[in-house]
Design a protein around this nucleic acid. Structure first.
Length: 371
RNA sequence: GGGGGGUUUCCCGAGUGGCCAAAGGGGUCAGACUGUAAAUCUGAUGGCAAUGCCUUCAAAGGUUCGAAUCCUUUACCCCCCA
């Protein structure tokens, strides 16, 4: 394995499975546990790069299906690759397009060989095989590529979940075989729905293949949060201890802490940016819906001591921006929410370092519950 | 002076005898959002002691079992001819 992707463990919390590490990539280190903002189409919606950097984010996401569909990976290559194309000089992880099998289910069909997408833009066919998913990600030039996986909605028929899980393992092997870049890490994805035995078996088989990192996929796709936590209880110990663990697509602030205490190192989620665009701001006292009338003359910032640009204004002003449909409203709350998520993770890292993660966890949970 | 058209629930606007507390937008209020087809979507929006009752379609009066819808008068607005 390339020395470029060293995962250096610093310490582990004694009261839970949380651990503190640094994940090295060709575009810089990522301090974990970490939250990665989602920039599906090569932009974290509504946030300029320097603003994004100021939130404390190290690594961001982009999406294989979306970039292959538009502008096309050849165009990204022609414009210098993903980093030059987007201007983001830090690490980038590309999702494989497996999630679009779930989110764009109407336009996608999975066979044993590949996923066939009818483009949601112009109806053109995009055939995404495991090999093609790797080739596109290598062309894009992300630091971390994800294997193509088969994501199914939950709840689902046991045989569908099992099929998707077993196919994901076969596809992982094909992706691994197809990968050629030494400066790009390939992460495997554990599937298996809520079937704990299937999950553990999937993790065990993938672990034997020796990937650089391991992800848990197929969660927060319709199941109850407690079911997700139970699944993590089973899966996390089955994933290699000395490699990065990434919980895909999760989640709310509470979900991040639930993940961290079970030994997850990396997270991504659209929630801070999407909910921000929809006027919802995260705080230690729970979310504020800033379109609500109660904020009309509220002269306080969203959160005291928050250093973000939104918190240099009043809640009343931000409500005004949303009511007037000014684009600055969504932009400010996207930055605030990413700043909030980054602070949450930074505080979590500090708590692990002082061996007090569960105290930190209890304090935050109590705050969100309004205690 | 003569002729014609109009006034609808916060706004715009449909509705020409019962199925109308009244379509559809907008606004407002509330909710949702978890590897982004999302600056999107959903619900509510006359009042109330609310499986019902009361008040409303410019105002007043009338016709009718029944009127936002038909008739009369009044007020205001618009257009055409003098």
């Amino acid at each position: 394995m390339s020395q470029e992707f060293r995962f250096q463990l610093h310490c582990a919390d004694q009261s839970c499975s949380a651990r503190r590490a640094t994940f090295f990539t060709p575009h810089g280190p990522v301090e974990t546990p970490a939250f990665m903002p989602v920039g599906t189409q090569g932009t974290v919606k509504g946030i300029e790069l320097d603003r994004l950097r100021e939130t404390g984010a190290h690594m961001i996401l982009a999406n294989t299906y979306h970039l292959a569909t538009r502008p096309g990976e050849e165009t990204v290559v022609a414009l210098g690759g993903l980093h030059k194309f987007t201007g983001w000089e830090g690490p980038i992880l590309t999702d494989s397009g497996g999630f679009q099998l779930y989110s764009l289910a109407n336009c996608a069909k999975a066979t044993e060989d590949e996923v066939r997408f009818r483009s949601h833009i112009d109806g053109r066919l995009l055939a995404l095989s495991p090999e093609r998913a790797v080739a596109i990600q290598e062309a894009l030039g992300s630091d971390v590529a994800m294997v193509l996986d088969h994501v199914v909605a939950l709840p689902n028929k046991p045989e569908k979940v099992r099929d998707a899980c077993e196919r994901t393992i076969r596809w992982a092997a094909r992706c691994q075989k197809a990968a050629t870049r030494r400066d790009q890490a390939l992460f495997a994805i554990v599937q298996g729905g809520l079937d704990l035995e299937l999950r553990v078996e999937c993790a065990r088989q993938l672990a034997e293949m020796d990937f650089i990192g391991y992800a848990v996929g197929g969660l927060s796709v319709g199941e109850e949060p407690v079911e997700m936590y139970k699944t993590l209880d089973a899966v996390c110990p089955a994933m290699p201890y000395e490699k990065p663990r990434y919980l895909m697509g999760v989640g709310r602030p509470i979900d991040l802490l639930e993940g961290v205490r079970r030994g997850i190192d990396l997270f991504d989620c659209v929630m801070p940016t999407r909910n921000g665009r929809n006027a919802s701001a995260f705080t230690d006292a729970g979310p504020l819906r800033l379109r609500n009338k109660q904020f009309t003359r509220d002269d306080r910032p969203i959160e005291e001591h928050c250093p973000c640009p939104a918190c240099r204004r009043s809640r009343g002003y931000i409500r005004h921006l949303f009511m007037a449909k000014e684009m600055l409203g969504p932009m400010l709350l996207a930055v605030h929410n990413i700043t909030y998520y980054q602070r949450l993770m930074r505080d979590a890292r500090a708590a692990i370092e002082t061996n007090s993660f569960m105290e930190f966890y209890a304090r935050r949970v109590a705050g969100w519950a309004g205690a």
